[in-house]
């Protein structure tokens, strides 16, 4: 599975790169509609205090897609991604659980000021962050499947740093030939602070209740308010002359459920790499520029 994802990513990167290499330049290439497609790796840890005081850790591999829109005043994005892997704890014996995560996020930001030239810009907004986590654990002599979903409304602030450079000669970006012209890259850091945190999770701190021998999530899970979540993202975009580009992100996410009795805690360091495919006419992006 991870190999297939990696190969798919390389394939898309190659196809994307060929199209990216020889078009006209623009100074405001960061404006527009983008479809992001990429892979991700998460260093993931989870602790279900209903069954263990110990953290289980593992590497999850997956991929995802985003819709990203950025204008001079507003930006918004819709994100969906998944990851899967084994989480383990070696403590005398190795206990392992297959873990699946699904991210479902949305955010809307208003820019404070506008970046016309290189420099800092700021955004404030609101974000919805959803993480559904499914654990299939054979440990502790009571195999069970547990599903929990953290859904949080967060206040969001972002600092972005825009770089423009005008390359006067042809050059290579890794193996990709680049024509002379403007290049736009952007580094941003986003911090999301929780306003309303909910957890749809087991009403009992147990992996499975076995009342009827089957898992009935409607009966087993309930929606609870409270808990805590903190999320941040460091993102780097490099936009090529045709307005497509590359995007690399590091996301840090930590959350814990609302109750002390069998509380669930999750943390992840999530690394993403992918391509940005421009979904609007390049003219629109260029018209906002000053070149």
């Amino acid at each position: 599975m991870p190999k297939t994802l990696f190969k798919s990513f390389l394939f898309f990167l190659l196809i994307g790169s060929i199209n990216l290499s020889g078009q006209e330049s623009g100074k405001n290439l960061h404006y527009g509609n983008f479809l992001y497609a990429g892979t991700e790796v998460s260093l993931f840890q989870v602790r279900d205090l209903g069954v263990s005081p110990l953290f289980y850790e593992g590497t999850l591999v997956g991929g995802g897609a985003k819709w990203q829109t950025e204008t001079e005043k507003w930006s918004w994005e819709l994100n969906g991604s998944f990851g899967t892997g084994l989480i383990t704890r070696a403590e005398l014996e190795v206990y392992a659980a297959r873990n699946y995560t699904i991210h479902h996020d949305f955010g809307l930001w208003r820019k404070i000021g506008s970046i016309q030239e290189d420099g800092l810009g700021y955004k404030v907004g609101i974000a919805y962050q959803g993480l559904t986590n499914i654990r299939n654990t054979p440990a502790f002599r009571n195999a069970g499947v547990t599903a929990e979903s953290f859904n949080t409304l967060l206040g969001s602030g972002e600092v972005e740093w825009l770089f423009r450079s005008n390359k006067e000669q042809r050059k290579l970006l890794w193996l990709i030939p680049l024509k002379p012209g403007y290049r736009v890259s952007k580094l941003s850091f986003r911090l999301n602070l929780p306003m309303l945190n909910t957890l749809w999770g087991p009403r009992f701190p147990y992996l499975d209740d076995f009342t009827e021998g089957t898992v009935d999530y409607e009966q087993k899970n309930e929606l609870k308010l409270g808990g805590f979540r903190l999320h941040s993202e460091l993102r780097y975009q490099y936009l090529l002359k045709n307005g497509n580009g590359f995007q690399f992100s590091y996301r840090w996410d930590v959350m814990k459920g609302p109750n002390d009795f069998g509380r669930i805690e999750l943390a992840q360091h999530n690394f993403q790499a992918g391509i940005l495919i421009r979904m609007n006419e390049l003219k629109n992006a260029r018209s906002k520029g000053t070149n």
Binding site: G50, V51, S52, P53, L54, R89, E91, L92, E93, Y95, A139, F140, R141, N142, F204, Y206, L207, D209, F210, T211
Partner: peptide, 21 residues
Amino acid sequence: GIPNGGQLPNGWTYRFSISQT
């Protein structure tokens, strides 16, 4: 009572009844 498992800080595991029927 439905038995439920758990883990101790030293890695040992245990189980005991967590329900009444």
